[in-house]
């Protein structure tokens, strides 16, 4: 599903160069549930934006779903994001004063789907996250957990190759966090959805099957997690 080879990302900050990614190579297969972990400043955000086609690497290779991404132009990159990546953000990033249904329809709109099909697919996605009863509520009429569910429905609506979640429980209380983690796990187990969680929180990371640790722009460990935590397992002090 994802194959990267020696990914580099260099930012020019005044006179000095910042190597946000310094040669990251890994492979993620279809149907995997993986956590990318690292403290802030480790390069995980940069890695996420490259995996999510929000940014192009300075050098290195990136194959997404059999397609080479690194040399795409802006329009092609936008299309790839729209079709292959489903983003979930910490702050939900729903459009205000816009109903849940319309929020979920947004990626379809940009993908050129319209009319009844767009409506049906959005309804189905909302049903998958258990929100079929609240389709016409605006974000400010929904709880944090419900808003994140809408955001997940929006990420799923285009049937993306990868569900890419950036600290998806970061803005939620522990009870709702459990619900959201449970949702990710069931999407992975029941529908074989490829899920990538980007987090700094090892407790969240341990819910996945594989943990890739990143530090100073380099992958420092890439290990299978044989006994992933079941959603709802209490957080243990380490």
């Amino acid at each position: 599903m994802i194959q990267t080879e020696n990914l580099m990302k260099v930012y020019q900050m005044g006179d000095s160069e910042v190597r946000a990614l310094n040669g990251a190579s890994f492979t993620i297969d279809k149907g995997e549930m993986v956590a990318i972990m690292g403290p802030s400043g480790s390069g995980k955000s940069t890695l996420m934006s490259i995996i999510g086609c929000l940014d192009a690497p300075t050098s290195g290779k990136y194959m997404l779903d059999g397609v080479s991404v690194e040399n795409m132009d802006e329009a092609k990159l936008a299309e790839t994001r729209g079709r292959k990546i489903g983003f979930v953000f910490q702050q939900f990033n729903l459009l205000a004063r816009t109903s849940a249904l319309e929020n979920v329809m947004l990626p379809l709109t940009y993908a050129g789907v319209s009319g009844k099909e767009r409506n049906d697919r959005a309804m189905k996605a909302l049903d998958r996250v258990g929100l079929s009863q609240r389709t016409h509520h605006a974000p400010n009429e929904l709880s944090g957990g419900q808003q994140q569910r809408v955001a997940i429905a929006r990420a799923l609506v285009n049937e993306p190759a990868i569900l890419l979640a950036d600290e998806p429980t970061g803005a939620l209380d522990s009870k709702t966090s459990v619900e959201i983690m449970d949702l990710f796990q069931s999407l992975h187990k029941d529908s074989g959805q490829t899920v990538i969680l980007v987090t700094h929180d090892s407790y969240v990371a341990r819910h996945t099957d594989r943990i890739i640790k990143i530090s100073d722009g380099k992958i420092v460990s890439d290990e299978e997690n044989r006994n992933p935590l079941k959603a709802g397992t209490p957080r243990m002090e380490e």
Partner: peptide, 10 residues
């Protein structure tokens, strides 16, 4: 940013 993330072109 969000519109771009879900596939909006420039």
């Amino acid at each position: 940013g969000l519109r771009k993330a879900v596939g909006a072109t420039r």
